[in-house]
Nucleic acid binder design. Structure first.
Lengths: 242, 242
DNA sequence: TAGATTGTTAATCGATTAACAATC
DNA sequence: TAGATTGTTAATCGATTAACAATC
């Protein structure tokens, strides 16, 4: 019996990882996989794998494990990857171009439906066969078939304006890569990805590596040299998936 | 008195957001800011702002708020942004190029120190003045002055090999953009950013929007049409910063 | 002083994990 | 059956938030 319906956010964020690993396993001919194996591949705790999967239902077989292909199907279904999500990307600089080409954006339920920019030299060119249109044409271009997901890959200064027009055009989910806090109405799903935050989190941990090793050197980091390397027994620092 | 030393991971992830907002405020001439103002700008709870900041010390003034410039300095110090972190990027496709040009990678404590790829047409060209070298030269190029942070922006199939060589060269922190679970020794900091995971999390929420609205339509998402729009009273869905 | 706002407490909620009965 | 592994429980840990005394 399924544990319960509501799937925890932390579990949702891990399902894509299991999905990817299962896809590889299935492709390489694996029939059955245990929570312990999956855990080692994903570098998480086996209890966590079992608890995560239990939210989807009871798909495992005690004593032998999970049928890889069936489990993959169930995760795909849960993630909505058996659907069709047209994606519109606004801002076709290097980042927007990287996204338009990314395997994750071009397969498994997603489809790059429209690309927009304001740069005259870009408008009219194509990325993977999809023409880049001028953002002025946004409303007319998506009318009738509004993309489910809008991706913002513009400079921060343009991001709110782009979001507003996406919302007015009927887009119900926005993935924002601009380093700007956006305002959207309730009911519109917003997720932010800020690449420089990741770098700053790393900076924090690097400059505090010494702190753990007995507080012998609680100096502020020097402006010229990186923090001193731990002498021995380096500290394991948590890795983050996200 | 500082609440305690250890700063929660969730707080660390928000400090860069406060930092960015404070930088804007200071630049526009603001002297003092309250937790309530900062909270509105960051779209978080004011209690959360105060608790986050209390981990750095007691920098506020009861009755009036925080000195914006001083608070900014303290956050910079805490994040290690007053240091100098040389960054090496491996894989100068669209993503690597976007990163090399990103403001977050080229200012505030970070410095793009070296770029690598294996593509002959790229090797020898420059991005923002930094030459792209062949990855074969990695060890010799970084010897003597190993970058603090290595960024992996290669295809997944190359990522583990790149990580191994980064570790051997003395790099102590890796930011991995490849959709691959990596293995690094204890003591090496690893953070993963997977752009397609974000998209899949959105897909999950989009396909479950109906679930909350009374469970009247627990259908699997149709393969041709997106999930039905909520008829009225659209559900607020949590946004994620990270 | 009165008003405003911090810093901290304590309650609550969500996520992790070890342990183990259930069961293939 | 014996061995293996799931699914679930319960303990623990970490994060969030309302409330309010402290205090500028």
């Amino acid at each position: 019996m399924p544990q319960s319906r509501r799937i925890p956010e932390a579990t949702v964020a891990r399902l894509p990882i299991y999905q990817r690993l299962l896809l590889e396993l299935v492709r390489s001919g694996t029939r059955t996989v245990s929570s312990e194996q999956l855990a080692q591949m994903a570098k998480v705790n086996a209890s966590k794998v079992r608890k995560d999967l239990s939210f989807l239902g009871s798909f495992g077989t005690r004593g032998s494990g999970y049928d890889a292909e069936y489990l993959l199907t169930q995760i795909d279904r849960e993630l909505g990857l058996d659907g069709d999500w047209p994606v519109a990307i606004v801002g076709i600089g290097n980042l927007g171009r990287a996204l338009a080409n990314a395997p994750g954006f071009t397969s498994r339920g997603f489809r790059v439906a429209a690309l927009f920019d304001v740069e005259p030299t870009l408008v009219g060119t194509r990325v993977r066969g999809v023409p880049i249109r001028h953002f002025d044409e946004f409303e007319t271009a998506v009318a009738g078939d509004p993309p489910a997901i809008g991706v913002i890959a513009t400079p921060p200064s343009d991001a709110q304006h782009v979001a507003d027009r996406m919302v007015r055009a009927g887009i119900r989910a926005i993935l924002n890569f601009a380093s700007r806090v956006l305002t959207v109405p309730a009911g519109v799903l917003l997720r932010d990805v800020d690449l420089s935050i990741e770098l700053q989190v790393i900076s924090f941990h690097l400059s505090h590596l010494g702190d753990l090793a007995d507080n012998v050197t609680p100096l502020p980091p020097s402006a010229t040299a990186p923090a001193p390397a731990p002498v021995a027994d380096p500290v394991e620092v948590a890795s983050a998936e996200q």
